[in-house]
Design a protein around this nucleic acid. Structure first.
Lengths: 232, 232
DNA sequence: GAACACAAAATTGTATACAATTTAAGTTAC
DNA sequence: GTAACTTAAATTGTATACAATTTTGTGTTC
């Protein structure tokens, strides 16, 4: 909500910039899962025709961030519990190995950047902007994949992380505080030490922690506020 | 080439059907890497407007099967040696684990389907249609991912296999015969026996074989016939 | 008041029209 | 003959117009 004006400012929005803007908004939980994304609405917001808006939406649908159903239009995806499990299982398969590669290749500049990300995340949390903090937390994982210099796998991880933010929006348990700070710090230390085994193991346990902090029992998704709206 | 008429037949082509048709043609090596894919040309072939053709091309570009460069249009991707390594490294990370899951879950009907695929591949080879055989060989891998019931990972594998067919078109060494038949048969046997460890190991060594059958030394891609055209 | 039928509005799908950019050809100069 | 410049053709990018579908609202009937 803070930077919406940026999105519609002077330089004419391109298909990619719109997709990125929407992706960020979804990632930061400014748009909830299930929200309808009307083409006219978006083309008005971004100041372009529906043609380019459609291209953006199609792009986002390819990474499963939005659902497009024929003649029904686009809405922010709302992954099922099954999908949620799959996404985290995929992350548990990909990311530990990637963290190992990153530990092998990490340069001082990379470590500095990761520490800056952790710091930014902390600042966002203090500023009471949990959405932004979540986004930065995801960026941390994306950066590690980039450091590993495996562009292809990094691309997969990037989409998995984006989808994770939808899953967290739907299934995160309030009870479990997101005290990932220690985990991320320990990971950076392992990367700085080029301790491959430890980096892989830390990443694995970190992801298992995240996965288990979700409430993925059947029919428990905080869906489109059916009962919430009724009680309010 | 055989079924081109199908693509332009009575039911009006949709964006998805065009993407699938092009994907198949690329996979079967009927269209070479680097080939320009003009929008007017395609819209004429499929009998639709450029609007829907563009959607198809964008979809294919998301899975890195075609390159879209702004104001330059779309052409069939031609992956670099670096990209080729990355794709096979990703497969070596994803597919063995997936084969293990498939061994756990394989039903008799699944085994029968895999055997049918192997048979079809054999038939295609005898009919002197190596492109079709290559496609069916890829389908074999895709099916295993499907049997593993990990839709998300299966999606990744699917795109990796499609990209592999481009890589094979560019970097396959003639010398090494593609005698995968034994490998695939042994894999099916392991799946039928629910022998997870063996399935994982067979898949891994099979992929390593494929990877090493590529000639990925620098500047060795059979690119757009610079010298070929000069000598002819 | 509930259920159905029908009409109007809104939304998406596709084609076409026009603008911007690249590519190719042709021309001139050296 | 080659290089550089100019102009014309072709191709892509974007907006708009129209067709098809869904959604919404209204009125009728029971």
């Amino acid at each position: 909500m803070t930077q919406t004006a940026d999105s519609i400012s002077t330089p004419p929005a391109t298909s990619d910039s719109i997709a990125q803007s929407l992706s960020l908004a979804i990632h930061e939980h400014r748009i909830a899962p299930g929200t309808k994304l009307g083409e006219d609405e978006l083309s008005e917001i971004y100041g372009v025709s529906r043609t380019v808006v459609r291209a953006s939406l199609q792009s986002l649908s390819h990474m499963k961030l939005v659902d497009i159903r024929r003649n029904k239009g686009a809405s922010v995806a709302s992954p099922s519990t099954k999908e949620a499990h799959e996404v985290f299982e995929a992350r548990e398969l990909l990311e530990p190995r990637t963290a190992r590669s990153a530990a092998k290749r990490a340069q001082p500049a990379d470590i500095a950047m990761l520490e800056r990300h952790i710091n930014d995340e902390h600042i966002a949390l203090e500023a009471n902007d949990p959405g932004r903090a979540l986004y930065l937390s995801g960026l941390f994982h994306t950066e590690i994949a980039r450091i590993a210099q495996q562009t292809t796998i990094a691309g997969f991880i990037e989409t998995l992380i984006a989808r994770s933010s939808l899953i967290i929006a739907l299934y995160w348990r309030r009870e479990s505080a997101l005290c990932e700070k220690h985990a991320h710090h320990a990971l950076v230390q392992a990367l700085a030490d080029h301790n491959e085994q430890r980096a892989e193991e830390l990443m694995r346990s970190h992801l298992v922690d995240l996965h288990s902090a979700l409430d993925l029992r059947e029919r428990n998704g905080r869906t489109l506020s059916l009962k919430d709206a009724l009680s309010s």
